[in-house]
């Protein structure tokens, strides 16, 4: 294939131009086929970037984005100065801390446990069952959570029969983050373990044999063979996860929270939705959203850099 391309033209023209020409001649259809795809990316992925400039304007739908007057950093000042700024920042941070501590580690633990199961049939059975919740909509999951944790819900029924007291968990600010992170683990621990299991399947079996000959026990094998074999995957996913910190679970929070839990549930992205979209403060919402996106990008770059420095593996 390569040769045919090379022999296609004579080197009269400048090389760059003729490379394009030959590629175009050979791949006319491919270029045409790429057009709708690139159009999608231009309009729906890059297009919204134009709308971001309203973060620095006083947007009014009547005059449109271009006609609205510039206001500089006004919306950012308003956001940073507001009483809610620290609240949403703290909540965004705390939810992520809990989720990194428990939500990120749970699939790793599950993969390790599944890896120790000797019966293939039993392992497949467990896997098939725990993957399932991943495919259930967040609306249904949230509906179930509201139901189970309701004042007269199943969780309360069980706790009362064990001698506890009834609590209205869904309007208790102290419970929100726990319920949010816990239900997230319930839904995605199985699915999250797939990628680790795939990494485990790629570990060379001779490593285990060599370790066994050296007298390594089960725990030593996990510590010195299995975990190191998973490390690159763990680090890649950790970097990606940190890059998503600012956007986590926004849809589920909207479904689960209510004014009595805003104290611990309101995060940056839910503020954008409520103040920006529901109350139609488009410029304010865009400014908060931009702040959110910039922090997210910075976190991703930072995580990548740290990982490259300390572990030698990175996304790019």
């Amino acid at each position: 294939m390569q040769e045919r391309v090379r022999s296609g033209g004579v080197g009269v023209r400048p090389i760059r131009e003729s490379r394009w020409r030959r590629s175009w001649q050979r791949y006319t259809w491919v270029y045409l086929m790429l057009v709708p795809v690139l159009l999608y990316y231009a309009v729906f992925e890059y297009g919204p970037l134009y709308g971001l400039i309203i973060a620095f304007k006083d947007y009014s739908p009547a005059v449109g984005i271009g006609g609205s007057p510039w206001v500089g950093w006004q919306w950012f000042h308003e956001f940073f100065g507001s009483f809610y700024f620290w609240r949403v920042l703290r909540n965004t941070l705390m939810i992520n801390v809990w989720d990194l501590l428990f939500g990120f580690t749970a699939p790793i633990l599950l993969a390790l446990l599944l890896n120790e199961v000797t019966s293939t049939r039993f392992r497949r059975f467990v896997q098939t069952m725990v993957y399932l919740p991943h495919f259930i909509s967040i609306v249904v999951i949230s509906g179930l959570v509201l139901d189970l944790f309701a004042q007269n819900g199943l969780i309360n029924d069980i706790l009362v029969s064990l001698g506890g007291t009834r609590t209205a968990y869904m309007s208790d600010p102290g419970s929100f983050q726990g319920i949010y992170v816990g239900s997230g683990i319930w839904q995605s621990v199985g699915w999250g373990s797939i990628i680790y299991l795939a990494a485990l399947a790629g570990i060379n079996p001779s490593l285990y044999e060599a370790a066994r000959v050296d007298g390594a026990g089960r725990w030593h094998l996990v510590r010195h063979v299995t975990l190191p074999g998973m490390m690159p995957t763990i680090i890649t996913l950790l970097i990606l996860r940190i890059g998503q910190m600012m956007s986590v679970g926004f849809e589920k929070i909207i479904l689960l929270y209510n004014p009595s839990t805003y104290e611990t549930a309101d995060v940056i992205s839910t503020t954008v939705y409520r103040r920006g979209l529901l109350e139609a403060n488009f410029s304010y919402g865009a400014a908060v959203g931009l702040f959110n996106a910039v922090i997210a990008l910075a976190l991703l770059l930072l995580a990548n850099r740290l990982s490259r420095t300390f572990t030698g593996s990175s996304l790019w």
């Binding site: 990316y41 919204p48 709308g51 954008v272 920006g276 996106a293």
Partner: peptide, 22 residues
């Protein structure tokens, strides 16, 4: 360049409001 144009979008997003306006 085409791959870069596409893959770059994984690292940013216009956000809720600009998407809505679009």
């Amino acid at each position: 360049p085409i791959t870069l144009f596409i893959v770059l979008t994984m690292f940013f997003s216009g956000g809720l409001i600009p998407n809505f306006l679009l």
